[in-house]
C-alpha cells in the first residue's frame, strides 16, 4: 500500500513537472496575449496542482496533506478569477485578440 502511494505520488509529480514546463514554454511561444493566457491555463492551476497532489501522496496522512489539499483548492478557485480579470482588463483597454481568419465564428449561438 505504501509502495503504491509512493509510485502514484512520483507519477503525479512527474506529470505535473511536465505540464508546468510545457505551459511555461507555451507562454513564451504563443503569438499574442490571449493565446498566452491559454498556455498559462495549462501551467497555472493544472500543472502546479498535479505537483501538489503528488506531494500529498508523498506526505502521508498528516496535517501537511490537509494544507496541500487546501492549497490546491485555493489555486483552483483563485486562478480562473485572476485569468478572467486579466483578459477582461486587456479587452477593455483595447488589446485586440489575434483571430483565425477562416470565417467568422462569433455568430455561433
Amino acid at each position: 500500500m505504501n509502495l503504491v502511494a509512493d509510485i502514484l505520488g512520483w507519477a503525479f509529480i512527474a506529470a505535473g513537472s511536465f505540464f508546468t514546463v510545457v505551459g511555461a514554454f507555451g507562454l513564451v511561444r504563443m503569438p499574442d496575449l490571449y493565446t498566452r493566457l491559454h498556455a498559462s491555463g495549462v501551467l497555472d492551476p493544472f500543472g502546479v496542482s498535479l505537483i501538489l497532489i503528488g506531494l500529498m501522496f508523498q506526505a502521508g496522512l498528516t496535517l501537511v496533506t490537509v494544507k496541500l489539499a487546501f492549497l490546491v483548492v485555493l489555486l483552483m478557485f483563485t486562478s480562473p478569477v485572476a485569468c478572467h480579470a486579466l483578459a477582461r482588463a486587456a479587452l477593455h483597454r483595447g488589446v485586440k485578440p489575434l483571430l483565425d481568419d477562416k470565417g467568422d465564428a462569433s455568430s455561433k449561438h
Binding site: 493566457l37 491555463g41 477582461r88
Partner: peptide
C-alpha cells in the same frame, strides 16, 4: 476559464 483552451472574456 479553468478548462485550458477556453477563457471567458
Amino acid at each position: 476559464t479553468l478548462t485550458p483552451g477556453t477563457i471567458s472574456l
